[in-house]
Design a protein around this nucleic acid. Sequence first.
DNA 1: AAGGTGTACAACCGCCTGGAA
DNA 2: ATTCCAGGCGGTTGTACACCT
Length: 315
Amino acid sequence: MARPPCCDKEGVKKGPWTPEEDLVLVSYIQDHGPGNWRAVPTRTGLMRCSKSCRLRWTNYLRPGIRRGNFTEQEEKLIVHLQALLGNRWAAIASYLPERTDNDVKNYWNTHLKRKLQAGSGDGDGDGAAKPPAHRPPPSNSKGQWERRLQTDINLARRALREALTPLGDLKPQPQRDGGGDSPASTSSSQCSPPPAPAAAGPYVLTADTVSRMLDGWAGLNGKRRGGAPGTPGGAETASTGSSSEVSYGGGTAVVAPAAGGPVFEYETKPPAAPFQLMMPLSAIESWLFDDDTHFHRPVQSASLLDAAPMDYYLL
DNA sequence: AAGGTGTACAACCGCCTGGAA
DNA sequence: ATTCCAGGCGGTTGTACACCT
């Protein structure tokens, strides 16, 4: 049967969100937490589709999102993960918790694809390393698919490690994969999802970021501090830790840091550490380095960063 | 200076999936 | 076992801004 639209087409507002709408949404989520999106429009009075609310939150308002330029490391990571996983933007973005899948996707489409095209002379208009073997054919058995997924995971780990290692001296690279990766695996990791990287929860929630956002918007009682949003702001990004930006139709409101404690009431545990490449990356590290014995098909010695995308298709 | 073109990114659309009833 | 629903995902579009001629 035809699925009914997620919300009434009549009376549903579309297009760019206004600061007021954002404020209402953030305020609601502060009180109730994200989720139950269907109820959000009715409870908040927003004339928006529930999906639109969720998207606005996850792609833009959610705390912990870093906006602005991608770093070289992030870029490399995206390129390699795309080569490994295909256009599974959500999966790729999970390795970049400060980035949304939409951001990653957009960045790929606008920057990286073109870049790779230019680099490879690929004229197929796609430029993306196609992941021919990474989509499970419909006929694939579950076991096959799981094995493939596990291989994806292992390769992604390696790509991530390669991409991150130059950034900081993480750990001496264990020589576990010196061509001799035994498929021997611990029972816990075989065919199981990878441990979530640091802060790879449903969303990266840091009280500080939310506080900043809300504080900058003059709080939840509808009083907006000072100027209208859209005031052109500085070039700082949230990653500086000193301000957050929220832009509206080209304008940018610089949100001041908050004094604050936890803003979200449901935040009962310490927020996952924001994924910052300058940070120790302990969870990722442990994931990468402690469980690196499961490469069934290691990419031979060549660094993934130097390898052509096709080198990944060894499956 | 004005118009055209390209770029970046927010947002929408439709399909898919997992879980609850 | 089946149906329904909410949420998630990837593809695509719309629009504002930047750059070029």
